[in-house]
Design a protein around this nucleic acid. Structure first.
Lengths: 192, 192
DNA sequence: TTGATTTCTTGTCCTAGGGCAAGCGCTAAC
DNA sequence: GTTAGCGCTTGCCCTAGGACAAGAAATCAA
């Protein structure tokens, strides 16, 4: 049984039986480095629980800048919530930064589970709440913290991202240029 | 029947009958300017649909800065999603910037409706998706746009906020100081 | 191996916006 | 009245980080 799925679907209202049904509804998918799990313009029909590897989500802003909106690693969910749940074409890309193993579940199957497993709706709400919270924290950090502080936090909270993602993506995620990030790292090395 | 509630609960899966039941589950509450709908440390037990007035949500960051995380106006929902749906104490404050009329629904009643009205779960997911989307847009704007561009956007999209909220709150929402915002406004006046 | 591409660093110069402090209306309280 | 306290503006100086461009260093292709 998958470690990733067990980690993702942790919730007091989900029994072991529920979990077995949920697990059985997922299919294992492999992606090569560079593969897209979702591209702009497509309407998302599924989401992916990451068992192994690292995914990057990004958008192009109206200036054509490639902006990394997030990294999705082990035991996390790669999803475009808006596209999946409102049926509109996606604004963002989900791309594998490394070779990946993911457990996929499609919307139709998910909807059925929502009806048959009571706790799953609660789990979904809790998961979304968590996402909203994380994003709000990020927005506040963008306002109140220096680039260097944001980098240090990422270093502590998600060290695997620093190892697996190229610096330019980390830079756009942190809201700085890659040159600036390079300088920030130099400073941090010096001061240690 | 309330205009605000009709606007808030717009969804293809909600029938007129559903809406009547939903409406009946809300209670009208009045708040005076300065009243708190929710304070840090309290565990949220309800949310509020704004019929009239303007609410500000804010947090203190770890430096003690008061950061405006959002404005909630007419036909919008004032809620701390995280606290309400995961039962943890709130990190943020919800405060009335003006006298307000709101329709309140408590968590318990909401849970019952989730069970009795099928479409409501879908509506909830759609609403959360929308919130996530809006917040993501805001984060991207914080990265890629100048303070002045962010101000102009707010001016166009939510003119009532500019009229009803003091400048310092708008400034912290936009991620600048009130002095800077004052200068930005001067520039914009000149160039018009 | 060798060229090509991407990744990362570094330099120079420049600007948006912060920090701080003063000033100038307002309205509210006494 | 006048004193206090917001809300907003302005001036002066300073710094974090952007723009652009030129190298290293690493990776990949053939």
């Amino acid at each position: 049984m998958s470690v990733a799925l067990a980690a993702v679907y942790q919730h007091p209202l989900l029994s072991d039986r529920d979990l077995q049904v949920i697990f059985a509804a997922h299919q294992l998918k492999s992606f090569k480095k560079g593969d897209f799990l979702l591209q702009k313009g497509q309407t998302s029909k599924a989401y992916f629980c990451v068992e192994e590897g690292l995914i990057r989500s990004y958008v192009y802003d109206y200036n054509g800048n490639d902006i990394t909106t997030g990294f999705i690693g082990k035991n996390e969910i790669a999803i475009d919530v808006v596209s999946l749940f409102t049926g509109v074409p996606s604004e963002e890309y989900l791309q594998a930064l490394t070779d990946c193993q993911c457990y996929m579940i499609d919307l139709e199957t998910l909807q059925e589970l929502y009806h048959s497993i009571k706790g799953l709706n609660e789990w979904g709400r809790a998961w979304m709440s968590g996402s909203l919270f994380a994003l709000k924290q990020r927005t506040i950090a963008m306002i109140t913290e220096s680039a260097s502080a944001r980098y240090r936090k990422l270093e502590i909270q998600h060290p695997q991202i620093l190892q697996q993602a190229p610096l330019k993506f980390i830079a756009s995620y942190l809201g700085v240029t890659d040159s600036s990030l390079s300088r920030i790292r130099k400073e941090l090395c010096k001061s240690t």
